[in-house]
Structures are given as structure tokens and as C-alpha cells.
Design a binder for these strands. Structure first.
Lengths: 205, 205
DNA sequence: CTTTGGGCTGAACATTTGTTTATATTCCTA
DNA sequence: TAGGAATATAAACAAATGTTCAGCCCAAAG
């Protein structure tokens, strides 16, 4: 039973249900009993497997971070093809199942400010910085006066799609990470990256 | 008693302490007793004044949203001078006391996804869109192929400073909304807005 | 077959939670 | 000055929370 298929152990089921619930409501507003109920298991078993609710949260953090790192490494090696721009957020969405709770959990992780989220942010930035350096070396991207800030700017332009996706969908009337919205968004970003967004008159001010 | 030692009513004190605690830890992880303790008041008084913890949260939401709206209106009228770029986030920070919990609370409000935050986001977007239209009409900014998306792009570039300020400070080594960081960030954003960030070779791809 | 050990549970426990109730104290006003 | 409203609190309450504990179940080792 235990080693039949690893991903169907009760432990893994509990972890995945907790991941889903944490992603939607946040860890503070999810109870051990809710997780146990969603996993079809007793609350005591949750504690038995993870020591405490906080221990479970740490395991989920680690799991999501490792999924993220896997995708980040593949992106760094150029294994992820982005259809329009060079959006990693878009590629992330494409690589995961459509109903995956990972993006929403990543959002919380990145914004929470605790160590796991900080680490994820740092790694994303490191890859982003390296990618920008490659593009500069390839003569495609201009280095600019402040390359580190420029790399951060490019990264954050990507990251924000993950963070304010719902709010943008609300005001734009189209999901900026959906089929139509992603195209429109990528086209506009590319246009700004190519031509800037000031007119010649504006530039000469 | 109310005017003896403190010019502020206990109700206002409770609201402000709750605002501070909610901003740092999030409403779900702050207890009524913590708020009462911080305000130097009994837990029962908190309920007496606001009906419930949820009622208190709603009042704080409304209060922060109204502070935000006030600043947004002033910005829309051009009353807020931004030193470097046209960053509203930067102006917001400058107009508030340095230790104000409002920016941190706004961050939570914007990301929480409930109605109060959605409204704030919509209003910010409306002002952002109007500002972009003015700049286009003045011949300073290029309208682009997709003006709505372009306005959203500009707005979100600004908004992100509020949302990932701490994470950026961590990887950049300098607070992007502090004296030095704001200048570096604004210069780089302006450079991209003016010249784009692709080289001529990159453009001709 | 017996033993053993881990997965698993029901029931209970100690705290913490938001809230209520009854009661004081203070302030304004008729 | 009497009285009612507003302000405030201590104490208690019911519900919910994370966690513990004794013991059941069952597959596999001896």
C-alpha cells in the first residue's frame, strides 16, 4: 500500500489538498480539520505525518518552491518556449495543468515575505539577470546605464502578471494570461521594449 | 475623560492600532485582544465600537481606501509633484509619514481580491488611463496599438514598487522607493520609456 | 501462526478565539 | 441636581483550534 505508487500515499494526498486550500484562502484561514476533510482523513493523521500545521506548511512551501525551481531551470536552459514574448510567467502557466494551485500558492509565497518566498524571488532574479546578460552579449538587448536595475525591471514586468492577474483581468475585461490577453499584453510590451512609449516631441523635452 | 489626556477618541485609537497590526500581520492573524492591548483598552470595547472584528476590518478598509482616494484625486489634479518620473507610488510614499502603515495595508488590500481592494485598483486604473490619455493628447506619449493595455502596463509598472518593494530591496541592495533607489529606478524606467531596451540589431530581427 | 510495527482513528484536552452580559463610571442636559 | 446616554470594563461563554493519547487495523517479517 505504501510503496504501490508514491504519489497516492495519504501523506502526498494531504500535502496536495493543503496546497490547494492554502493557495485559495491562505494558511492562516485554513484549519487542520478542513485539510483532513478534503483529504478524506482524520485530523490526527495530518499531525502524525507532518508534526504540526506549521510543519505541513513548511513542507508545502518546499514542494511548491521545488516545482518552481524545476521550471525555472528549464527556462534558464531555454527548454521552455514562450509563444509571444519572453514571459516566464506565461510559460509557467502553460507548463502546469490549467487548474493547478501552484501559481496561486506561488503568489502568496512571493508576497508573504518569509524566507521561502525570499529565496524563490532571489532565484528568479538570478535567472532573469543571467538571461538579460545573455541577451546583451548577443547584441539583442541594450545594457543600459544600470544593468542590475534594468534586469529587475524586466523581471518585475513579468512577475506582475502572476501577482495582479485577476485585477488586470477585471479592468481590462480579458485575462492577461489567457489566450487572447497574453497576445495583446506581449505585443504591447514588445512594442514598448522596441520603440519606447514617448513620442519624438516627448523625447526632446 | 476622552479629552483629558488624548485628543483622539478611543474609537479612532482602536482603528489606527488595528490598521497597524493588520498591515503587518494580516487581519486573520491579529486577534481582538492584541488590538485591544495595543490600544490600551478592553477587548469588549473593540466589539462595542465596531460590532465585530469583521466590522472593524471593514472600517479600516474604508479608511485606508479613503486616504488612498484623497491622494489619488490630488495626483489626478497634478497637485502631487513627483521628483523623477511620474511614479504615483513614489508620491504616495512621500506624502505619507515615513512610518505610516497605509502603504503596507494598501498592499494587502490590493492583493486580497475582496471588493474594497478591487475598487481601489479600479480607481487607480481609471486615473492612470486618464493620465495616459492626457499625455497622448499633449503629444508626449505615443498612443500605441492597444491604448488600454498600454495604460495598464504603465500603471502596473508603478504599482509593482508598492507590491514587491521589500523583495526588490533585498536583491538590489537598495530600497527602490528610498532616496537613492527611487532615482536609479526612475532613471532606468525613463530610459526604457524613451529608447526602448532593444538594440538596433535586436529591433531588426 | 504469531509478532511487530507503522498507518490510521475517535475521543478528549488545553488554549485561544470572537462575542455577550452585567455592571460600573463619566458626561451632558433638562 | 436628577437622570439618561455614552464610555468602558471584568467575567464569563460557546465555539473552534491545534494537538495528544490510547488503541484499532492490517500487511509483512520471523
Amino acid at each position: 500500500m505504501r510503496s504501490a505508487n508514491d504519489d497516492r500515499t495519504a501523506r502526498a494526498i494531504i500535502r496536495d489538498r493543503a496546497l490547494e486550500l492554502f493557495a485559495v484562502h491562505g494558511p492562516a484561514r485554513v484549519t487542520v480539520r478542513q485539510i483532513a476533510g478534503a483529504a478524506g482523513v482524520s485530523p490526527a493523521l495530518v499531525i502524525h505525518h507532518f508534526g504540526s500545521k506549521e510543519g505541513l506548511r513548511a513542507v508545502v512551501d518546499e514542494h511548491v518552491a521545488s516545482v518552481f525551481d524545476g521550471l525555472l531551470q528549464r527556462a534558464a536552459r531555454g527548454e521552455l518556449v514562450t509563444s509571444d514574448g519572453a514571459s516566464f510567467a506565461e510559460a509557467l502557466l502553460r507548463e502546469l495543468p490549467p487548474d493547478s494551485p501552484v501559481p496561486a500558492y506561488l503568489r502568496r509565497l512571493l508576497l508573504a515575505g518569509d524566507s521561502a518566498g525570499t529565496e524563490v524571488f532571489r532565484r528568479w532574479f538570478a535567472v532573469s539577470r543571467a538571461t538579460v546578460e545573455e541577451l546583451v552579449a548577443a547584441g539583442v538587448m541594450a545594457q543600459g546605464r544600470d544593468p542590475v536595475v534594468r534586469a529587475a525591471f524586466v523581471m518585475v514586468n513579468d512577475l506582475m502578471l502572476l501577482l495582479v492577474r485577476d485585477q488586470l483581468a477585471d479592468v481590462l475585461g480579458v485575462d492577461p494570461l489567457g489566450p487572447e490577453g497574453a497576445t495583446r499584453w506581449a505585443e504591447e510590451v514588445l512594442a514598448v521594449y522596441r520603440d519606447g512609449l514617448l513620442t519624438p516631441e516627448g523625447e526632446s523635452r
